[in-house]
Design a protein around this nucleic acid. Structure first.
Lengths: 116, 116
DNA sequence: CCCTGATATTGATAATCATCAATATGCGGG
DNA sequence: CCCGCATATTGATGATTATCAATATCAGGG
């Protein structure tokens, strides 16, 4: 249903830009923009922050709706965007869904800026 | 006219988060989201990339409209957003406007992810 | 002093997005 | 087997946003 490589396949172009196109190509730019789009919302940044700050490394949706003062469907929606962007991992155990940071994902997102 | 601290005043809060709020606060999140909002557009990423790749370190608008296949007003609009976000610097010499990367701005933006 | 060219601004429009209410799904307990 | 709870999905609505056409600003040249 989705073909969003977003983060993982960062190595989709050769090391040397083809002569005449040293700068970011259109498709490459669109891919990178997807990650920043996911980060471009205050509530999503707070979600990442809360999950990161959790001692266990994971949080369930029920712990996330209250501090953000948002409805449960809205939080689920934001979480889905973060998962699709490759930033969060989702694991369902019983009735609860636990979200955790994808290891290295934030560092990789930061690295996107270095390779502009 | 604008009160967008965005990048520069990153030191607007104490070093230690107030007890009870270990995660990102609402206002802090909004500020950081502003920077990522500026980065969340493919054309703006390409603008940054082109300016960065330029040997002289700067580009004028006339050199930026063509590779992006966008109208001149649209490019000016995107450039303004990048300037407001603290990522680009604008200098007008004669009839031309030259844009250059603000030194360290991309690194600082990347650092925002480390301090979530 | 007008004229040309480069850039910025304004106004309008279509697309995207954040949010909520309502509903669906699916697990665990009685 | 039905019920309640946690989460996901759908549909609708209001708010942003990206884009363009038209116009304004403004420097330099004739």
């Amino acid at each position: 249903m989705n073909s969003l490589p977003t983060l993982e396949p960062a190595a989709d172009e050769a090391c040397c830009a083809p002569a005449g196109a040293p700068a970011l190509g259109a498709e490459e730019a669109k891919q990178k923009a997807l990650v920043f789009k996911a980060l471009a919302d205050p509530n999503r940044l707070r979600l990442l922050s809360i999950v990161k700050a959790e001692a266990t490394g994971e949080s369930c949706v029920c712990d996330l709706t209250e501090p953000l003062d948002l409805g449960q469907p809205t939080v689920s929606h934001h979480l889905k965007i973060l998962v699709d962007a490759g930033l969060l991992h989702r694991e369902k155990r019983g009735t609860w869904a636990y979200y955790s940071l994808v290891p290295g994902a934030l560092e990789q997102a930061a690295g996107l800026l270095a390779t502009l």
